[in-house]
Structure formats: structure tokens, C-alpha cells
Simulated assay, not measured.
Amino acid sequence: MRDMLKRIVLVVFILLVLMAVSGYFYMQKHPMEGKSSADKTLNISGNQISK
């Protein structure tokens, strides 16, 4: 039981690391054209919040 739990945690951790690395390389290839995350922040109704 304990070994199975360790294996599950290890697999989840490896998947998270792979997702982070692939996301990093994707963002290097497809930058967001100078838009920061603050420019894309949406409120609940879906309207863009401008500063």
C-alpha cells in the first residue's frame, strides 16, 4: 500500500515537471506579443479590466 502511494506521488510529480518544461518551451516559441497577464485579466462578467 505504501509503495503504491509512493509510486503514484512520483508519477504525478514527474508529470507536473514535464508539463512545466513543455510549457516553458512553448512560451519561448510562442511569446504573448508583449501582453502581460495583467492586460488579460478578466472579471466575472467577462469584460477586460483596464488600468
Results as ranks from 00 to 15, higher is better:
V17W: 12
T41R: 04
M19A: 15
M4E: 14
T41L: 05
K6I: 05
S45R: 00
I8G: 02
F25P: 03
V11P: 04
M1E: 10
R7Y: 05
H30S: 11
S45N: 01
Y24F: 15
K40Y: 06
Y24G: 03
M4L: 13
V11N: 02
V21D: 03
L10V: 08
F25I: 08
K35P: 00
L5D: 13
V17K: 09
G23D: 09
R2L: 11
Y24A: 10
A38P: 01
S37V: 14
F13K: 13
K29T: 07
D39A: 08
I14P: 03
D3S: 12
K51P: 02
G46M: 02
V9L: 08
N43P: 01
S36N: 11
L5V: 14
G23F: 07
Q28E: 08
D39P: 03
R7V: 14
S36G: 15
H30K: 12
Y26F: 14
G46H: 02
M1Q: 10
F13W: 05
F25R: 05
K29S: 08
V9C: 07
K51M: 05
M19G: 15
Y26S: 06
L5G: 09
K35A: 10
N47W: 00
M4I: 13
M27T: 15
M32V: 10
L16I: 15
M32F: 13
V9T: 11
G23A: 09
H30W: 09
R2N: 12
I44K: 04
R2V: 06
V9D: 13
V17P: 01
A20G: 14
N43V: 00
V9W: 08
M27K: 06
L18F: 10
Y24I: 14
L16M: 12
Q48G: 02
Y26A: 08
D39L: 05
K40C: 04
I49V: 06
P31S: 09
V21T: 10
I44T: 00
L16K: 04
R2G: 13
L10P: 00
M27W: 04
H30D: 10
L10H: 08
R7Q: 11
Q48Y: 01
S36P: 03
S22W: 04
V11R: 01
T41Y: 03
D3Q: 09
Q28S: 07
S37T: 07
V21N: 01
Q28W: 14
V12M: 13
M32A: 12
F25K: 03
L16T: 15
Y26P: 00
S50K: 07
I8T: 13
K6H: 07
V9Y: 13
Q28L: 15
V9K: 14
S22T: 07
I8D: 05
M32W: 14
L18N: 03
E33T: 14
Q48F: 00
S22V: 11
V11G: 00
K29M: 04
K6G: 02
I44S: 00
V12P: 02
L10C: 09
S37I: 13
Q28D: 07
K35F: 15
I49F: 03
N47C: 00
M4N: 08
K6V: 03
Q48W: 00
K40R: 12
G23M: 08
L15A: 14
I49K: 01
R2I: 06
T41V: 05
K40E: 05
